[in-house]
């Protein structure tokens, strides 16, 4: 009976995995096939789509732009959010509730609505912001905020912040030193996890990038969108490359976070 139950569990799990993997797998096969028209099986396999993609300077540039925007937004988020959460938790713990509401706002408004709102707001500003990567960095910062705040706030609740800082103070450390030497190392795990999560989310973001900046600063997703009219094999190769990169990042994230707990 126990075996029977195990069998049911296993079959459910494997069906779900198969279901989720089928599109990825077929995309992968499609990207590898030289052409696949009216036949059940592809005519032949080749890496030509990948080589075409990876030698396309437009792709390399778009990829670089996406990396630049995501990393800048996450850097900005880290520099602003870390001290902010520390202040919230150490000096004004009551603010945590309000923060929890505030950080949900970027999610409460659909991206289409907020991007149109941002367009209207900044269309007539003295500085040309619309169409530049800067507005995208700032917008991505707000999107990353909920991920970062929640993950880091969780790390804060798992340590005994007040007692740790008190102990460090009594041993002669200033508040800044206590934060850098005692608190920050314990947040590394939450911080890294949230950074990788936000990174993979932001790398795939399309709506804000398309409406606020569009083709004037072609990011990875815009490039993919603009390539939709070209060969399906080519776009499949593009999607697979993107997937592979995200997989790599996730693997790296789990490696790094595991390395910390040992």
């Amino acid at each position: 009976m126990g075996n029977n139950k195990l069998f049911i569990h296993k079959s459910v799990v494997y069906s779900v995995i198969t279901l989720l993997f089928t599109p990825i797998l077929t995309t992968f096969i499609y990207s590898l096939s030289s052409s696949w028209g009216a036949t059940i099986l592809p005519d032949g396999f080749s890496l030509k789509w990948y080589s075409a993609l990876l030698t396309d300077p437009r792709f390399i540039d778009a990829f670089g732009r996406s990396l630049f925007i995501c990393i800048s937004a996450l850097l900005l988020a880290t520099v602003l959010v870390l001290p902010m959460i520390f202040v919230v938790f150490y000096y004004y713990p009551k603010l945590d509730k309000i923060m929890n509401l505030l950080i949900l706002l970027p999610f409460a408004v659909p991206p289409v609505v907020s991007s149109v709102g941002l367009l209207q707001l900044y269309a007539e500003s003295k500085f040309q912001l619309i169409g530049t990567p800067w507005i995208l960095i700032a917008t991505y910062f707000t999107i990353a905020l909920p991920f970062m705040y929640r993950a880091i706030a969780n790390s804060f609740t798992t340590i005994n912040l007040k007692d740790l800082i008190d102990a460090a103070h009594l041993l002669g450390a200033s508040t800044t030193k206590a934060f850098l030497l005692v608190i920050l190392p314990n947040l590394k795990k939450g911080l890294l996890a949230s950074l990788f999560l936000s990174f993979s989310f932001l790398l795939g973001e399309f709506v804000f990038a398309n409406i606020l900046v569009g083709t004037r600063y072609e990011t990875l997703q815009i490039y993919l969108y603009n390539m939709r009219q070209t060969s399906g094999h080519f776009t499949s190769a593009l999607v697979m490359t993107y997937f592979a990169f995200i997989f790599f990042c996730t693997w790296l994230a789990s490696r790094l976070t595991r390395g910390n707990t040992q």
């Binding site: 340590i159 005994n160 007692d163 740790l164 008190d166 102990a167 460090a168 005692v182 190392p185 314990n186």
Partner: peptide
């Protein structure tokens, strides 16, 4: 000072 919660630095 020694705390009830130990307050050791976990890292």
């Amino acid at each position: 000072m020694v705390f009830q919660s130990y307050a050791l630095f976990p890292n």
